[in-house]
Design a protein around this nucleic acid. Sequence first.
DNA 1: TACTAGTTGCAACATTGTTGCATTACTAAA
DNA 2: TTTAGTAATGCAACAATGTTGCAACTAGTA
Lengths: 140, 140
Amino acid sequence: MPNTFKTAAERRIRQCGGRVTAGRVRILTILLAEQQAITHREIERRLLGKLPLDRVTLYRVLEWLTDKQLIHKVVSDDRVWRFHTNNELNSHQHAHFKCTSCASVICLDELPNERDWSLPIGYQFQEIELTVKGLCAECV
Amino acid sequence: MPNTFKTAAERRIRQCGGRVTAGRVRILTILLAEQQAITHREIERRLLGKLPLDRVTLYRVLEWLTDKQLIHKVVSDDRVWRFHTNNELNSHQHAHFKCTSCASVICLDELPNERDWSLPIGYQFQEIELTVKGLCAECV
DNA sequence: TACTAGTTGCAACATTGTTGCATTACTAAA
DNA sequence: TTTAGTAATGCAACAATGTTGCAACTAGTA
């Protein structure tokens, strides 16, 4: 039900005190409806049929949504950001899986024990970034 | 002793059946002498005083050295590849540490148990990519 | 020494993301 | 409802990183 996603998007944007603009709603709606983390380019493609949205605006909206913690960025070995909505389960730190065949990215729940890492003396832990690579169910 | 590094670089290149060219030797020498993983741009800077080496050649040499497994690439959240030599300790999978202040990157030894990851049904594990972020001893 | 395939340098291009600035439009207040 | 102020947008130009095609060069070999 895309309409539900749109309503949720509007609510979330309003809740964090931002202006409810068409671009923000469209982009967050797309991300809410999406199971996996998708790229700027993939979002652009999903916006195609409808009235166009500027590339730069898309970048800025994604940055804004990330700042407001409505979504999060995933870095990957192809040097492209991917974006995924936050929810109660994955607003904290979590791992990602990337398919080495089709490049799809999903979020995983678990993380290794953060304090397990024996860093060199004098180094200070902040956070962990973990990507598991392999084949997704489609590509096996 | 930079001369030792140069000798080692020549030996390693010859060992894997490649032509021993000035560019390859210079670049691998730099990487052997370096504690941390460094970027294309940082390598370029270290080549400055001496006779110049083309940007594209540098990219191609780094790719070649990676293919031959003499060095490995590290992906990072700034979307820039960093390169570090392989040795017995880290030619296998290992984790990386990145300083969130000065962006320096080093290699860590340990990895979490690879099979611990409960992937969705039908997904197949291949490898793991882990970056611990925090402050290095210089920046604490 | 001469040959040849592998390597390099150069120019042009591709992709992803950023900045500056004038215009538009969301929201709150009148 | 209208208005005004500011946040958001669109456009053009730019920046950083990496890639491709091709002619010229050179390391290794016969």
